[in-house]
């Protein structure tokens, strides 16, 4: 797949504070990538650099082959962004907000505003001032604003902040569907890791101003999950601390945790258990995005999280 964004050795400081250093990053065209990291890791600064609204100190940045520092407007024409603050005009109605940004981005399609209001379920509230919108409505309006000019790249900084579970589900499933239908490349910054796991094709972990790791979930699992723990709901009660040579322990009642060398050992474990006991559920406990995220952080800078 074609590389859309390429970053090599990027560095950026504000005064004496070094915010980004030696950042190396790749995004393929059409993928959804999660940019993960703690507060202050440099995610927002990185997105601003990619959009050419601030200038890097050193390093190479190319977005669709263009340098953001030189061809910023060209990149911003093909980019849509949802910032953390949403950047909406509270004294204008939802529809007026979209009409204004449509004018600013040179959107000629008259039906685009109406279409997006409809799509994001804002038609009923289109004449209400954006300042009177609920957080969820404001986020949806900001997303509609970012999609007005049908961008090729979508930058989303905490797009689900403040949304209720229904809102989160709605926004994320829409993004996935939009990506599949249009091939738009999407970069999402978020803290809510389990939400991203469902929709992202790959992940980049930003830590202390640099990309500590990047890859698909399978690649990351391969690299970081040395011992796979699976929690099995079963009547089996281990007399010793191991079964078929795999260490195990009772977590609670019928829940037993087994430490396996990899997921390939799961069928053998289950076959062994089923010979004597029923199995009600099997849940891998440490190969999800959140577990890998902490593993990456632990490896990168020694922070220990459970």
């Amino acid at each position: 797949m074609e590389t859309l964004i390429e970053v090599n050795g990027l560095a950026k400081s504000f005064g004496k504070q070094l915010v980004l250093k030696n950042v190396n990053f790749r995004v393929k065209k059409g993928e959804i990538i999660g940019l993960l990291g703690p507060n202050g890791a440099g995610k927002t600064t990185f997105i601003r650099l990619l959009n050419g609204v601030i200038k890097s100190d050193s390093g190479l940045v190319r977005v669709k082959g263009l340098d953001p520092a030189q061809n910023g407007d060209e990149i911003r024409k093909i980019s849509g962004i949802v910032t953390e603050s949403a950047g909406l005009y509270h004294q204008l109605s939802g529809k007026e907000n979209l009409e204004f940004f449509a004018g600013l981005y040179g959107v000629k399609d008259k039906g685009r505003v109406e279409g997006l209001l409809e799509l994001f379920d804002l038609k009923e509230h289109q004449h209400k001032q954006a300042g009177k919108y609920s957080t969820g409505m404001r986020k949806r309006l900001a997303l509609a604003k970012a999609l007005l000019h049908k961008p090729e790249i979508l930058f989303l900084d905490e797009p689900t902040n403040g949304l209720d579970p229904d809102g989160i589900e709605q926004v994320l499933s829409y993004l996935k569907k939009y990506n599949e239908e249009t091939g738009t490349t999407i970069i999402i910054c978020s803290h809510v890791l389990h939400q991203l796991e469902k929709i992202c094709d790959s992940f980049a972990f930003i830590e202390q101003g640099t990309i500590a790791e990047q890859g698909t979930l399978a690649e990351l699992e391969e690299k970081y999950v040395e011992v796979l723990t699976v929690n099995v709901n079963t009547t089996f009660q281990p007399a010793q601390g191991e079964f078929l040579g795999y260490p195990c322990r009772i977590i609670s009642g019928n829940m037993v945790a087994f430490d396996l060398p990899s997921k390939h050992a799961i069928p053998e474990l289950l076959q062994g258990l089923l010979q004597t006991d029923p199995i009600f559920s099997v849940i891998p406990a440490n190969n999800d995005l959140q577990s890998i995220y902490f593993q990456v952080r632990r490896k990168f800078n020694g922070i220990v999280h459970q």
Binding site: R76, S79, T83, S85, G87, F101
Partner: peptide
């Protein structure tokens, strides 16, 4: 002050 300047600067307007 209304946090909308960011939106303007992210737009393709010189």
């Amino acid at each position: 002050e209304r946090r909308t300047l960011e939106s303007l600067l992210f737009a393709p307007v010189s």
